[in-house]
Amino acid sequence: MIQQKQSPLSNIDIWKQWKSEGLLSAKQALVEHYLPLVDYVVGRLLIGLPKNVSRDDLSSYGIMGLIDAIEKFDYERGLQFETYASWRIRGAIIDGLRQGDWVPRSVREKAKKIEDAYQKLEQHYLRSVTDAEISSYLNVSEKEFQHMLQEISITTVCSFDDPIKEEESETRLSLMVDEKARNPEYKVNEFFLKESLAKAIDKLTEKERTVVSLFYYEELSLSEIAEVMSLSPSRISQLHSKAILRLRGSLGRWKNQLMQQ
């Protein structure tokens, strides 16, 4: 995570000035202090995106997300603002990209086909399936399959921020955010989602688990992971894509089970 100067949260008066008194100068001070968060999130999201995606555009979307986070954050709950704001910033950037239709329909269709293949085959075999099995199911060569993974790597940036149901705005990750006053049904669904995700992670190959761990928990970039694992950045990108598609397939099964209840 990025290094910051002393957080305004150490001086609750700044948050009180904004939240209780509505002082715009206090809000501006918070925005300026947390701007490095935008740069940090933008830097991570740029990995794997097409070269025509502008950093300035991402930063603009991210700043809007930061402002939204500052407006909605409840400092009295004692939660860490950086974590909350990072997801708001990321969500705003992804919303902006989605509105710009930055991923061709053909690429999205390929991603969906592979995701469905992982979901059906792993449900059938009850284990992690191989590239050869996926290639056979898709009726393509393994070389073509690897090329497809490279093409769709740009879509896996958004995977967990996509809606659980197409007609709704609730995302997979939103179900895992700590919010108070959740009803028992929500807690049950949250438990089964986390359990399904944990089982799905266990089914990943060792290299895929390593990439997921280093990228999402250690917060290394794909190029840094490539150096750590002594693999090429393109190979790391493929491993990341396969891991995300496997996880999406597992969450898809969880969604289907939920809808049948």
Rank of each mutant, 00 (worst) to 15 (best):
S153Q: 06
V38I: 05
R55W: 05
H240E: 08
Y217P: 00
E218R: 12
R88E: 11
K143R: 11
T171D: 00
P8G: 06
I47V: 13
P50A: 02
T155V: 03
P184A: 09
N256K: 09
D178A: 15
I225F: 05
K165G: 09
T156Y: 02
V107D: 01
R248K: 12
E76Y: 14
D161H: 14
I225P: 01
P8D: 04
S153P: 02
K187H: 14
L173C: 08
E76C: 10
S241H: 08
S10F: 13
I2M: 07
I94D: 00
E208I: 10
R172K: 10
Q28S: 14
G78Y: 08
T156H: 02
S54H: 04
M259R: 10
V38M: 00
L126E: 11
V211Q: 02
L204Y: 07
T130F: 06
R98T: 15
V228P: 03
E109D: 12
G78H: 08
L193Y: 10
I2N: 05
A117T: 15
E179R: 12
R88P: 06
Y34N: 01
I2F: 05
K180V: 10
M148W: 02
E122N: 08
L58A: 02
H124E: 15
I201Y: 07
S213T: 14
R90C: 12
W254T: 04
